[in-house]
């Protein structure tokens, strides 16, 4: 026995273009967002794109000039600019957590011992326990990418940007999509409304638990309650740019609503490597000089050694790494 399901817009009856990935469809004729069970979905919003191709080129230029300072990057070429409307779920919740536990820490205790000549002050550390009984009560917006997997470059960073600019979203307008934003590659959601709510809940639970664990040495009880105050489907315009420098490809992702760089790769040139290697040697030499001239206490060379080692850890990393990755 078999059964057949039709894919047809429940409002204007025109056929829906379906794609095995999508959980929300937009009717090509009337633009209405439709859930996969055929019901209408109203909370569809969009962060409007404000930049064009030319501005994208300028943003890339500025980014490379600013972050590629001292590297001598000249003659790069932009090879691919692909704007994508990326789907996000913004799950709004009131979350409340009550947790009980204890915190262990140490207090210093000073006391005076002995009499006469032997009189002296002794400092000792005492372990102290403090009961913790606290609440977390907050309104939150959790943002999830509406896609499984994540081949969208920089998607992890976009979440934070979407959360910050969520209030600027406007209701989704299908005419605008087919008009001014037609160059955008439109991605729908692979995650259904129900799944988004569930996954959002898991994020809140995990976050509150880890905050409770941070506040306590041991948590005895931790209980979270949440109530949903609205789940929105928000599209954010992301420009994915590829550029070539010395035959190698690098990527930059730009958020179209603000024009800020989400994440970008910058080539590491020989000049950059030489600068950081020289720096490593300078710190080594500088630390040596300090411990030679100011070495009347054993702490000085030890501290200088540790400082030089920590700095060297990073300067040497810069000497050897394949490329740099920068957030905006």
């Amino acid at each position: 026995m078999s059964e057949l399901t039709k894919f047809q817009c429940p409002y204007c009856n025109s056929p829906l273009e379906i794609n095995p990935e999508d959980k929300i469809f937009n009717c090509v004729s009337c633009g209405q967002a439709v859930l996969s069970d055929g019901s209408k979905f109203e909370n569809h919003y969009i962060l409007e794109n404000t930049i064009n191709q030319k501005q994208v080129h300028d943003i890339v230029k500025n980014f490379i000039r600013k972050k590629g300072y001292l590297r001598g990057i000249r003659g790069y070429k932009i090879t691919k600019v692909s704007p994508i409307l990326t789907p996000f779920w913004c799950v709004n919740t009131d979350a409340y957590t009550h947790f009980v536990g204890y915190l262990r820490y140490s207090e210093t205790k000073t006391r005076t011992v002995g009499t006469g000549k032997n009189r002296r002050t002794v400092t000792e550390h005492v372990t102290v326990y403090r009961p913790v009984d606290n609440e977390i009560n907050e309104k939150r917006v959790d943002v999830l990418l509406g896609r499984r997997g994540s081949s969208i470059y920089g998607y992890d960073k976009v979440k934070d940007l979407v959360r910050a600019t969520f209030s600027r979203a406007v209701p989704f307008n299908y005419d605008r999509l087919t008009g001014t934003e037609k160059e955008f590659d439109y991605l729908s959601s692979e995650i259904s409304l129900e799944a988004a709510n569930q996954l959002g809940k898991t994020i809140v639970f995990d976050d509150h638990r880890s905050r409770a664990e941070k506040a306590c040495t041991k948590v005895f009880d931790c209980a979270t309650q949440i109530s949903y105050t609205g789940t929105y489907f928000v599209h954010a315009p992301v420009w994915q740019v590829e550029y070539i420098f010395k035959d190698e490809t690098y990527r930059i992702a730009i958020l179209g609503s603000t024009g800020s760089v989400i994440l970008g790769e910058i080539p590491v040139t020989t000049r950059f490597r030489v600068i950081f290697l020289t720096l490593s040697f300078l710190f080594l030499g500088g630390g040596g000089a300090v411990s030679y001239f100011f070495g009347d206490q054993v702490a000085v060379p030890i501290i200088a050694g540790i400082v030089a080692a920590v700095i060297g850890f990073f300067t040497l990393k810069n000497t050897f790494k394949p490329m740099s990755v920068h957030g905006g």
Partner: peptide
């Protein structure tokens, strides 16, 4: 003192 510094920093640099 110079020796202590060089021992710490030099070995960490070499390992890194």
């Amino acid at each position: 003192y110079f020796g202590i510094f060089a021992a710490i920093a030099g070995l960490v640099f070499a390992a890194r």
